[in-house]
């Protein structure tokens, strides 16, 4: 078991990677990436049962993960590299010509760890449910995980998937929502209010949990609980409370850094807040 101190160390380095990656190409999405760093660190380094050294598209006998909010790709790439899916040196190719690390995740270049393209929002839950159904057909009792933005929940396809998952009793999926309350044009509540999100998911027939996305003990405890609730005839979703931009003071809690890279000075300021714990790529 990875200790929370160890997870914190990894998350620190991942946050450094994110800042360095988006700064290097002056583009990308740091806000959501930083906000989901603690969750993704816990998921890949502790929660999921998977084999980074032997990636297979089908993921038979393994837990698999679908990233639906594909714009937080720098986070996913850093996690995958730090977890051993590919060499960390490849992180420097992010968003550059001929790279496997596309602006939004893609399968075309064969980057280990990526199972489907995402970026156009709202599609990942359907794919995750499809994979979960296939696992059931194959009598594979592993779990399908997915991550979604809260703004993304404004897409209609999410609610088609929500209906389908419950009506089909797909109970081997644990979806998580990055509930940071921010989207490109401002607070989600102002742009297109999601209302009582917990009540909505419960009304759709999903087991709905909540957790603090910046407290490793709560993340681990809640994920354990979620796992224990699989196999009960209902899909599981976790509303994860986060701050967009968590870990960098001037990015925290605002939508301003959703899709903007820091300049030299601000990147330096961010990196000063994020000590190098595992060695930069």
């Amino acid at each position: 078991m990875t200790s929370t101190t160890e997870l914190q160390k990894i998350a620190n380095q991942v946050r450094r990677d994110i800042i360095r990656m988006v700064h290097a190409v002056n583009s990308g999405h740091p806000g959501g990436s930083l906000g989901c760093t603690d969750f993704m660190t816990a998921l890949y380094f502790e929660v999921m049962d998977h084999d980074p050294s032997n990636f297979s598209m089908e993921g038979k006998g393994e837990d698999v993960f679908y990233l639906s909010n594909g714009h937080i790709s720098p986070l996913w790439y850093s996690i995958l590299a730090r977890n051993g899916y590919f060499d960390i040196s490849e992180l420097k190719t992010f968003r550059k010509l001929n790279s496997r690390l596309q602006g939004h995740p893609a399968t075309e270049e064969g980057l280990p760890g990526i199972r489907i393209a995402s970026g156009s929002l709202g599609q990942g839950m359907s794919a995750a449910l499809g994979h979960a159904l296939a696992k059931k057909l194959d009598s594979d009792n592993k779990i399908v995980y997915s991550l979604h933005g809260d703004g993304e929940l404004q897409e209609g396809q999410i609610w088609e998937a929500a209906l389908f998952g419950a009506s089909r009793k797909i109970d081997n999926i644990i979806a998580t929502v990055d509930y940071n309350g921010q989207q490109i044009d401002g607070p989600v509540q102002k742009v297109n209010d999601l209302g009582d999100l917990k009540a909505k998911w419960e009304a759709f027939g999903w087991i709905t949990l909540e957790m603090n996305g910046h407290a490793f003990d709560d993340i681990l405890k809640t994920m354990e609980k979620a796992k224990s609730m699989t196999g009960q005839g209902k899909p599981v979703i976790i509303l994860m409370h986060t701050d967009m931009g968590h870990g960098v003071d001037y990015m925290q809690g605002t939508h301003e850094w959703h899709g903007k890279a820091p300049d030299d000075e601000l990147a330096q300021k961010a990196l000063e807040q994020l000590p190098e714990t595992l060695g930069d790529y």
Partner: peptide
């Protein structure tokens, strides 16, 4: 829309 996505996920699984 969901049907196409579910199909994509099933294909991913083989």
């Amino acid at each position: 829309a969901n049907m196409m996505g579910v199909a994509a996920g099933m294909a991913t699984a083989g």
